[in-house]
């Protein structure tokens, strides 16, 4: 019913078929789902992509079976502090990183499997008043945390067995860092967004803060998802959670901004806005970016997918019969995961 109302207002007609249903899994534990992700998992010489689901008190690993079925293979119980999110770690295997806390992240743990001991385990990586944490390539984790006096920005090198091998402190800006993104193709370059609407650029090897620039948008507190450098310009994909429509800031979901790191000047390049919904305006709640596509959960309970380089909404997944979508994440190979609070996760090919 929702799809019927939604598709006629999409700019180029109905495009729900751009999302092809692949399979579904459902956690029947009855606990409220807080996040979903995927992880490469190697067992018995076979490496495969598995789904990870998180509730407040547990994190579960799901293995693909024949005929698009899924089986829960293990559950880590984390009863003391609630799980807030799963932190994806690119190019790692057999490791799941989770953030735990009450309103903010209080600690980060690695969940893994020890083949020597033939047992699942978890280990503490970091504690503190953590504002943002993002997994980087080559088993690195960057985080920002605050004490009363100062902010600490730190990169931890994780070991294969789930410990921390080494760390590097980055020079912290005064403003709180809310998100990080590696600059693709530049191993030592990292960007971050701040709560005061800035883009920060670091040298990961030296820890130097190279540049702090205005994010080039009046929407408050953007989050960075991807960054790449081309022809001397730094392109950053930003999202605007809970952005309200106003004269100064349109109803944006994602936004590609070009920065000249030499001058600090910026210009918005492509804007991706939520399609109008059947009940009026829809606003971006949360989302994820993979390659040149962005996916987001909107206030209507639908998931929308955009071509970020054209600013075009390419598909809309209406709320399911059992409820609204609450989470959306990309997995390798243009597979979209959409999760509901009741533990249902749908996998779609885009």
């Amino acid at each position: 019913d929702a799809a019927e109302h939604l598709t006629p207002v999409l700019p180029d007609g109905p495009r729900e078929e751009n999302l092809q249903f692949v399979s579904e899994l459902k956690d029947s534990s009855g606990s409220c789902a807080v996040d979903v992700s995927t992880v490469w998992w190697e067992a018995d010489g076979c490496r495969e992509l598995r789904v990870v689901t998180a509730s407040e008190s547990s994190v579960s690993l799901w293995q693909p079976l024949a005929h698009n079925h899924w089986a829960k293979t293990y559950t880590w119980q984390l009863a003391e502090i609630p799980v807030i999110q799963i932190i994806p770690l690119p190019d790692t295997c057999n490791l799941v990183c989770v953030a735990l806390g009450e309103l903010e992240i209080g600690e980060i743990r690695l969940l893994g499997y020890s083949s020597e001991a033939d047992s699942f385990k978890h280990s503490l990586v970091k504690t503190g008043n953590i504002k943002a944490a993002v997994g980087l390539k080559e088993q690195r984790l960057v985080s920002s945390s605050r004490t009363l006096q100062e902010q600490q920005v730190e990169v931890v090198l994780l070991s294969e067995t789930g410990g921390s091998k080494d760390w590097q402190t980055l020079m912290a800006p005064e403003e709180t860092v809310t998100a990080f993104a590696e600059v693709e193709g530049m191993r030592e370059a990292l960007v971050g967004t701040t709560a005061a609407n800035s883009i920060v650029v670091w040298n990961l090897q030296t820890g130097q803060l190279l540049r702090q620039m205005h994010a080039g948008c009046s929407c408050p507190a953007p989050l960075c998802h991807r960054a790449f450098s081309d022809s001397g310009l730094l392109f950053v994909v930003l999202s605007h959670p809970h952005a309200k429509e106003s004269e100064s800031c349109g109803n944006l979901a994602f936004h590609v901004v070009a920065f000249n790191p030499r001058t600090g000047r910026s210009r918005g390049v492509v804007f991706s806005s939520p399609p109008p919904g059947w009940g009026g305006r829809q606003v971006y709640l949360e989302g994820d970016v993979w390659d040149t596509v962005g996916a987001a959960v909107l206030t209507s309970g639908a998931v929308a997918v955009w071509d970020l380089l054209r600013g075009r909404c390419g598909a809309v997944l209406p709320p399911g019969p059992s409820g609204h979508w609450a989470l959306t994440r990309w997995a390798a190979g243009a597979v979209l995961l959409a999760g509901q609070r009741d533990g249902t996760v749908g996998l779609y090919r885009y």
């Binding site: 040298n203 000249n260 790191p261 030499r262 390049v269």
Partner: peptide, 23 residues
């Protein structure tokens, strides 16, 4: 984006900013 919008562009911006930034 044209160069006039964003100012002079350098392909080596990362190395240049690293050399100029406080250690």
């Amino acid at each position: 984006c044209s160069e006039s919008d964003l100012g002079p562009i350098s392909l080596n911006w990362f190395e240049e900013l690293t050399a100029e930034a406080p250690p």
